[in-house]
Design a protein around this nucleic acid. Sequence first.
DNA 1: GACAGATCGTATGTAAAGCAGATGAATTGT
DNA 2: ACAATTCATCTGCTTTACATACGATCTGTC
Lengths: 203, 203
Amino acid sequence: MPAVPGPPVTPRPGAETAEALDGDLGWTLGVVFRSYVRTVNALVDHLPGGPRGYQVLAAATQGLPGGQGALAQRLGVDKTVMTYLLDDLEKAGLVERRPDPADRRNKRVVATERGRAVWADAQTGLEHAEEHVLSPLDPADRPVFRELLRRLAAGTDALDPANGPCRIVQELTPDDVPDGVPDGVPDRVPDGGPSRPRRSPRR
Amino acid sequence: MPAVPGPPVTPRPGAETAEALDGDLGWTLGVVFRSYVRTVNALVDHLPGGPRGYQVLAAATQGLPGGQGALAQRLGVDKTVMTYLLDDLEKAGLVERRPDPADRRNKRVVATERGRAVWADAQTGLEHAEEHVLSPLDPADRPVFRELLRRLAAGTDALDPANGPCRIVQELTPDDVPDGVPDGVPDRVPDGGPSRPRRSPRR
DNA sequence: GACAGATCGTATGTAAAGCAGATGAATTGT
DNA sequence: ACAATTCATCTGCTTTACATACGATCTGTC
């Protein structure tokens, strides 16, 4: 599981111990990201599936086309995961599985009235969460940061997935190491978000 | 891992994906962070334990005081995890467990000669990785981004752990939530040091 | 000195989460 | 009508981590 990249060995910045880890970028990036993730998790923890439940709910509310398989692919979760994710959401009365009249193999995922309301509340909370994360920054700097981050994300998106890590790995990896490097780059990062207990004993 | 915060779904059916992601802080943050994580993972994937193995190796190289229990707490991993983490590192000949003469319960973790060499290589790679992540940015903007991120991380650290999420959750969480809802806040690592993404135990 | 209690590292059992493959229902093509 | 494909689901297995219990060791008190 992709864990956190680089917590510094020295939790206290004041210590003179060599900050031998990743200078600052990895650590600070991790701190900010985890802070945001924690906040988001807390905000959507009340709905089944946690953050991913929220994503599914959002998709259902907006009435995206396609069945739950397409939804799973879009969200980057396994189709089997989507199954019990929807089980829980349906059990909670937030979404419904409706067979697609056009193709009865497909099951369209639609949000219930209550599901839409719950989503709207969560959505509001998440908007506040963004500002909450940026709050330590001077108000004038926040748009600057947002813009830089946006540019970074855009550039990264184009740079990374194809050959970025592979090349840098080939370039830098020592070859006196045990086994080879499985340079599998997942099109989507498997996410370790909270999810529901598996498999209800049916039948 | 930490769940993906920002939904990849387009907020409006009319809008296209690119636009949707623009203003989404959580999404862009996630993209950049995951990009970095992927790169780091690829760089340290060859050594046992992956990123955490690297962290342990770094700690061992620097000769931190304390036994492996203290090390585990500092790194935010469970002590039982640290056991087989060290097993693998020791099996690979990168570290050694030496009983502390002062307290023979303790086992000090020291890096072997080869462990130090491997760590140095990985360290070099990680430094390059940072620049690699920042590469989409104009060279002049990179220090700016670093500084903003640093300030953000510092402020977040002070803002978050105590009452940040709690307050915002209490403030924003709707109480018309589905079922009996323990809107618990994911607990932090008691240490106060940089925390790792802890999974809140799902009822 | 000897005992009780605490602490360190380890071993074991278990639970969660995900993935690959098989299954059943339904569609499409020939 | 038949085969091949697709969709959602179910089953089995693997990985990972936590909680607990255990032996070995240190520290305090008498």
